[in-house]
Write a protein that binds this DNA or RNA. Structure first.
Lengths: 328, 328
DNA sequence: CTGAAAGCGCTTACAG
DNA sequence: CTGAAAGCGCTTACAG
């Protein structure tokens, strides 16, 4: 009794069979206009809406998408969540939000996803084990890695073209006259950190320019701490390329505290283009990740796989663009 | 076939009846240890886990909590989402995330919640109509307003004691020697804005001190814009009490841009104690909302109501505390 | 186009 | 403690 009233009640009031009620509410069946009207009127009167669970039990399909997320402190991800929720709502899907405290998505989380027989899964910044993937695949549940790749395995991923972006950033900084630069990475095992370093270092090497990598953790505090480490070494590099914005804000704050002028004494470039990058205290030059386009591609793939499961893999890479502000 | 394999398959392999399988997985039934072991082994082998939908259909209960949220740009709310997800996961509940673009929770959102027959609903910063409440009540679905009250109607709400907090803030600022102050509110129709003004103005009036209210919208941009308006009037007040942190950061940035020194020329106090309030560029004095305690109270209430629905109303108010930093 | 009936995967009285 | 059976609220062949 999802709503206290079921299809039989509506049928009785409308003077039709329960099957007809079902046909009216489940798309694609042939019902006469007269029947439809009677049913709709009765349903309205009783406040009926079909029980999703009974429906799912029969169709073996749900209209629930599992969204797995780790970090909510990086504003990039709440925005991603919002975009997905909005997009999926338009087409009648709801979001089951799964938060992993640990880096890796836990077995219990996957069990939840399977118990609810989700129509699709999106994993953002949580890492995942082979086991998880297999469980989903075994059940023909489409999976998208959002803003992440996994080495060695084949997945469907959607992200920004990190290589192209970081090359452009390197060229841009070189053109600005920077020579000795620092790259601050996020967690070392993330594809985003790796790729952003790769494109960056590639161009620097080609130009025979040195650079140094410092490993951090994609958090504000991490960026702040890492920048302090660099500063305390005494020699300020001519530029910092920081693997995401939230760390870059930490870097800017550390520089400010040490009275190091940006962009006069050193330059800073971030990645993501979160709202805060545009705030006047920061005015961070950064690479915009076009969330809404990335979300659209993800939704498109999942819908197609729901329609007909193929298990297609591949990497969709959106370009994005450099947002020039005042830290360069 | 949530998992490809159902209870009958397990029963066959274990050499018991399907009822016994069900008894093992559904708590509280009496099963012999021998049967339990056989079933568990078979289930393990087949990778069985019970279909939540079939279960819900029978029990007329779900382990899904609907969480309704509007703003994700204020970091306070993503944190709330995270806390709820973590807490509920521990007791086997999942979060259906509902995002309302509009201020008011939409009818379609409620229909979704009802279709999924959620065990409880938490509404954070979205407003709600009488209709919504009735629909939930009619279905005995417990509802908590989190960090919000609604005038005239009786609900169960959990929040911070805004009156006590804002009184303390007023006293604190007076003690710091402030006399002419400005209060920047969020949306005027929110209980938080109203209560925070009430406590604040009450103390000021008692001390025969004037104050001026400016209406804003609980966003960074709103705080920034409103502070500019105040500044352009020419006379800088001796303190700003800003109804939430994210606006207060906007205020601080506007002041900085106009070379107005904080805390020398004017003081600023926020509300929430979001992470960013502690960042070195801001160092905002603020009132801490103890999210985790608030979440605990909410969970406790919802669980009790799931156990036995009473529709109890009331307001739980957590104290919180002043976090003194460098803007005062 | 429409109704009667089977069945999705479970839980839960009911006997034994 | 355990099995057979009914039933939760739906969808969907199957006849007509």
């Amino acid at each position: 009794m999802s709503n206290g009233v079921n299809a039989r009640d509506v049928a009785k009031l409308a003077g039709v069979s329960q099957s007809s009620v079902s046909r009216v509410f489940f798309g694609g069946a042939s019902v006469s206009e007269k029947t439809r009207q009677k049913v709709l009127a009765a349903a309205e009167e009783l406040g009926y809406s079909p029980n999703e669970f009974a429906r799912s039990l029969i169709t073996n399909k749900t209209r629930i998408i599992g969204l797995v997320m780790k970090g909510v402190k990086n504003p990039f991800y709440p925005l991603v969540l919002k975009e997905f929720t909005t997009h999926f709502k338009k087409i009648g899907y709801s979001i089951l939000f799964v938060h992993t405290n640990n880096d890796e998505i836990q077995k219990e989380d996957v069990v939840t996803l399977l118990n609810y027989n989700v129509a699709g899964v999106i994993i953002t910044d949580a890492t995942l084990s082979l086991k998880v993937t297999e469980d989903l695949k075994k059940n023909n549940i489409p999976l998208v890695l959002f803003n992440r790749k996994v080495e060695g395995q084949e997945f469907f991923t959607v992200g920004t073209n990190n290589l192209a972006a970081s090359r452009k950033i390197a060229e841009y900084l070189i053109q600005k006259g920077c020579s000795d630069m620092v790259y601050i990475s996020g967690e070392r095992n993330t594809s985003t950190s790796i790729e952003r370093e790769e494109g960056f270092s590639e161009v620097l090497e080609k130009n025979q320019l040195p650079f140094q990598r410092y490993d951090s953790d994609y958090s504000y505090e991490g960026g702040y701490r890492t920048a302090k480490t660099v500063i305390h070494k005494g020699k300020i590099p001519s530029a910092f390329f920081v693997a995401n914005d939230i760390m870059a804000l930490g870097v800017l704050d550390a520089l400010r505290e040490n009275s190091i002028n940006v962009p006069a004494d050193t330059k800073v470039v971030g990645f993501d283009n979160i709202d805060m990058a545009g705030w006047p205290v920061y005015n961070l030059t950064t690479w915009e990740q076009p969330i809404s386009e990335m979300v659209e591609e993800t939704v498109k793939y999942i819908l197609a796989e729901i329609e007909e499961y193929t298990g297609t893999t591949g990497n969709i890479e959106i370009k994005g663009q450099l947002i020039e502000r005042k830290t360069t």
